[in-house]
Nucleic acid binder design. Structure first.
Lengths: 330, 330
DNA sequence: ATCAATTATGCAAACGGTTGCACGATGTAT
DNA sequence: ATACATCGTGCAACCGTTTGCATAATTGAT
């Protein structure tokens, strides 16, 4: 039915192997025949069958992006979705396809199938998958973890943004703005990145530590913030683990009539699209997801081509300063 | 290197074709041999090579989800990301892989390659791709449009939620709550779904029509809302095209000291995670993205299996009533 | 002009499955 | 007991490429 390499060969008056070599640029071909082959390809509207090609070459031409999502929210998480965009771009630039696979439901089989059934040449994994058992089944299959694994940190291959440095930067910025009692709000300690952010907060924060972790909802952050702000000696600034926490905090400040940024300063992690439209616009520790995605793909390809061993890449975070932390009048 | 079907056959003492039949359940096999084959597969940790399988069977075992994204925001768009989650789930349940492909940059080649290089068995397309030229190259290749195409509406295959009915419902709800002058805020007329939502708004809104379309930013919505609300005879309720518009509107109401929902009622499209944490929590026209994704995959498979011709599926929207539209005290 | 080195292309065997056809074994009806 | 349908399995061709090896054609040096 479909036009094959043999049809092209026939029309060009050459052998199919010659056509293959023209396509892949694998050998020296006379300009004349090369031209005839191209002409034949054009005339027949030939598209090589990627399945046959993969089978013969042993390369699937795809990478898998694994995500542990219990519900749809994990997909709309800006960190994931923006990284995914960058990953797709970088992969497409190399002629690679991106397969997404949710590994949460079927217990672990997903990753194993993707590699063992030759569906992908490499994997981008979430840090939660890094466990000794899985690493064993992965063996020396090329993979990159997007984020810092909690365990096996130095023996695995990962790319992450520097959460610790980001939090430090946030605290130092607030201090420079004259805020004195800086608290940390939001996030759950079972997530590694929250722990690292809190460590950064602690590094930079010489004074009293006030750490309020939540169940991840804005509602919970709101309640904790209200409780804390009602105290006599309450914080005058917060580093928020995400925009949801900042949202809850803003609501608390409104209700308690504590103007932001005059009375309360706020810096939040993750640059949600709404952050700059909030009231006041939020100062943000921005994660360069484009770079993160791009770097993870680059590293993965180096692994696929066997050019490097395990490597760790840490990108630094940037502060996007908006009104919510600008106490000093300009 | 890898263990093949022949290794399994050898160990089980049968022919490879028998192993194939056991795997695919394509023929009647003696329970005894079936058991021997399974045992051999287990012992050798056999995983069939999906590439070989695809080549022989002519089915890639993957569907492609195409998106026209200029930037990363299109990926974090809740409509897209939630649908994607549902699509992945539904596909995985059938043993299918999901390939995502951004078609915006390379002008059309993406879709063509995906189908002609046998990378996917079917496509899920965004409505913006539906143009005569592309439909011609697609031919009778199985596809489903996720959303209503602006053109060729009755000749294509699509799944969408009923934006028109959703907007009608929003207006009727506001009317029942006693609001009189209802305006429409947000969205761009070049987007088909915005046009349909506005049509629904017009259907239900007997009175004066006030339609304020924006460039899609919250900032723009805010400015338009302020302008409108400063007029002597200003609207007392808004249907917002999305959460960004609602966000801008809320800011305008705060500044002009028009309490929501007492003075101004608000219903917005799209259930963003933050919507229920806004102040006040937003009443929402909720789109059942899970159902939308599930249905689009189901329809796509029916097309792949050649069971049906072009079909259109329209799902109805639901109203999630929260404080922003509840004028009547309970 | 001869021979070696190089270049361009063909041949055929993989890659690892699926599947139509054939055939022996078993079961059923007469 | 014979004929015929059914069941279970093997054989081998095929899916559409890639690629190592062989060979024909070309070039260059002597």
């Amino acid at each position: 039915m479909a036009v094959t390499i043999h049809d092209v060969a026939l029309l060009a008056g050459v052998n199919s192997s010659t056509v293959s070599r023209v396509i892949n640029g694998k050998a020296t071909i006379t300009p004349d025949t090369k031209e005839r082959v191209y002409a034949a390809m054009r005339e027949l509207d030939y598209h090589p069958n990627s399945l046959a090609r993969s089978l013969a070459s042993g390369l699937s031409g795809a990478i898998g992006v694994v995500v542990n999502a219990r519900d749809a929210e994990a997909f709309s998480n800006v960190f994931f979705s923006r990284s995914l965009f960058a990953i797709e771009q970088a992969a497409q630039a190399r002629g690679y396809q991106v397969i997404i696979a949710n590994g949460a439901q079927s217990r672990g089989g997903t990753i194993e199938n993707l590699m063992k059934e030759h569906k992908v040449d490499g994997l981008i994994l979430p840090p939660t998958t890094v466990k000794p058992a899985l690493m064993e089944t992965i063996g020396d299959f090329p993979y990159v973890v997007l984020g810092t694994p909690d365990t096996l940190r130095s023996e695995t291959c990962w790319v992450d943004n520097n959460n610790e440095q980001g939090a430090e930067m946030a605290v130092r910025h607030l201090q420079k703005q004259g805020y004195q009692r800086i608290a940390y709000l939001g996030g759950h300690l079972k997530r590694g990145f929250t722990k690292r952010r809190i460590r950064g907060y602690q590094n930079a924060n010489g004074g009293t530590e006030i750490i309020l972790t939540t169940d991840g909802t804005a509602e919970n952050a709101y309640m904790l913030a209200v409780g804390e702000l009602k105290k006599a000696e309450h914080p005058d600034a917060f580093v928020c683990n995400d925009n949801l926490a900042a949202f809850g905090l803003l609501k608390a400040c409104r209700e308690l009539r504590l103007p932001v940024p005059r009375e309360i300063g706020i810096v939040a992690f993750d640059n949600y699209p709404l952050a700059e439209y909030m009231d006041p616009p939020l100062t943000i520790v921005d994660i360069d997801t484009a770079m993160l995605g791009e770097q993870s793909v680059q590293l993965l390809f180096r692994r696929i081509e066997n050019k490097v061993g395990n490597q760790q890449i840490m990108l630094s975070a940037n502060l996007v300063i908006r009104a919510s932390s600008e106490r000093k009048a300009k």
